[in-house]
Design a protein around this nucleic acid. Structure first.
Lengths: 116, 116
DNA sequence: CATTACATGTGTCTTTTACATGTAGGGAGA
DNA sequence: TCTCCCTACATGTAAAAGACACATGTAATG
């Protein structure tokens, strides 16, 4: 969005859906579609792109940060339920630390913006 | 960075160098290279890509958010000094508001991460 | 006069995000 | 039963954002 005429301001944190995902999964094992509905509470966005969400979940699984199993007992389409691994929890911890840093930078910015 | 094996965590705010730039310019008119050196204080990063920085500055000028003039009096290579316009100040205000929102979302995340 | 620091830029590739579309099971009502 | 909608998972691709590489010229330093 460097080309002129596109100065829309969003102040999004890069790949924020990723730690949000991990946090939701730490709370309890969940399937993709449910995450999709729960994410806006954390991200503040209307909704997360579901295509990318499923891709992230599969990539996380490929690196053993989550595990999954098919849930077919309940009515409706079969669901793939994801669960956080110990490694995944460590990644979440890293994110939490990094986000504290972000918060600090934003605070610095706002203080300076307000002339303090 | 969705492909497996690339879980580096940075928690960067998207296009954060943009409001940082505007804030520095509000404090006083400055040229590109000086901004380049002053930005890390605000962004917390080693350095901003200078190529992109100059591109953003020109795009900002094209939309009258900043103005520039060549400064050739001093010794050394000629400098293009940028100055914030009233419109630019409004964009900075928008960013500040959006960043307060970001801060709020990060707080929510961390509170929930800490189990509160 | 070679090297380094200052200063402004262009070109291009990769990563990340957004938008569009496809497949399929099951429930509700015409 | 047929159509429509909702759930659920997934791929393909375009656009935006960022990273990397390099070009050009001035001046100061050793």
């Amino acid at each position: 969005m460097v080309r002129p005429g596109h100065w829309g301001v969003r102040a999004r944190v890069e790949r924020f859906s990723e730690p949000a995902l991990l946090l939701l999964l730490r709370e309890r094992p969940t399937h993709g579609y449910e995450l999709l509905e729960a994410l806006p509470d954390l991200t503040g966005e209307a909704r997360v792109d579901m295509g990318n969400l499923y891709r992230v979940l599969r990539a996380l699984e490929e690196d053993a940060l989550v595990t999954s199993r098919w849930e077919s007992g309940e009515p409706g389409p079969a669901k793939r339920t994801y669960e956080l691994t110990a490694e995944g929890r460590r990644l979440l911890d890293e994110w939490a630390a990094a986000l504290r840093g972000s918060r600090q930078r934003i605070d610095t910015f706002i203080d300076r913006y307000e002339g303090r």
